[in-house]
Amino acid sequence: MTMKKIILKHAIQCGDHESCGIVIDNMHYMPCVNIATDTLNHFEIAADDWIKAEEQGKITAIVHSHPNNGQPILSEADQFYQQKTAVDWWLVCNNQIFQFRYIQPLIGRDFQHGIMDCYTLFRDAYHLCGFDFPNYVRDDDWWNKGLDLYTEHIESNGFYQVKLSEIQEGDVILFSLISQKANHAAIYIGNNSILHHLPKRLSKRDLFSGYWLKNYHSIWRHKEWQSSNFTAILSNMAINTK
């Protein structure tokens, strides 16, 4: 039986209670007993199980389930503890396994072009919502080197353009900053605000007005976007601004 089938079987055996376990070396799943007080809505892995897993190899992922019609995204508490463990978290929901790689908090990131920049923020924010986009190799100042990375790839990744008057939470806003090409991206987070990451600055929220409104290029929405997806982004911002 494959590791993923073992994980799904364990979740089914736990019924309405959250299952939990540990992936070791990306190869072996160690089922654990959920010792949380409220196992219907939460999970907790015993310290002895952590020690046992570490003795067997490297912990590469934490697994738990969202039974009872739970959403296939990490909750605010899940994201908080994922940041504490600094490993991938796998979520069993609707008899499927959703894998969430460990990412740095969306707010307060240091900028490093091609590694931790505006596209990284865009990609990571959407990963929290259950979408996976390619991590394109990109040199600094690519927009002045004959490339048009955002507009060349955004439609092929499932986005379509919407009007400014139709903007909603989760939409991606492209900007043209000292360029004719779209060379900067932000996530619209409601209340006339955006989440983005500029060179030499920490990732942050800004008002979508003045300079930003004047220099926006276009607004894009994913074909499979649902308003419930945005909960994952809100949760990440909430735990990192308290």
Rank of each mutant, 00 (worst) to 15 (best):
I187Q: 06
L106F: 07
I219P: 13
W220T: 10
D117P: 14
F111A: 12
N192R: 14
K84D: 14
E152P: 02
L174K: 06
F122W: 04
Y136S: 00
M116K: 10
G114C: 04
H17S: 07
V137P: 13
H17W: 03
A77S: 15
G57F: 07
I115T: 11
A238W: 02
Y119S: 07
W212T: 01
W142S: 11
K4E: 08
L174Y: 08
L207M: 10
L198E: 14
Q13N: 08
H113N: 08
S209K: 11
Q112F: 14
E76H: 00
D139C: 12
H217V: 01
E166G: 06
K58S: 07
Y150P: 04
K214W: 02
A61D: 12
A232V: 01
L40I: 14
I73A: 05
L177V: 15
F133Y: 02
S209N: 10
P105D: 15
M3C: 02
K214L: 05
P199C: 05
C118D: 15
T2D: 13
F230V: 06
E55S: 12
M237R: 05
I187W: 05
S218L: 06
I107V: 15
Y29M: 08
I45M: 04
D148T: 14
G190K: 12
H17D: 00
N215T: 02
D38Q: 08
G130E: 11
E166M: 12
N26P: 10
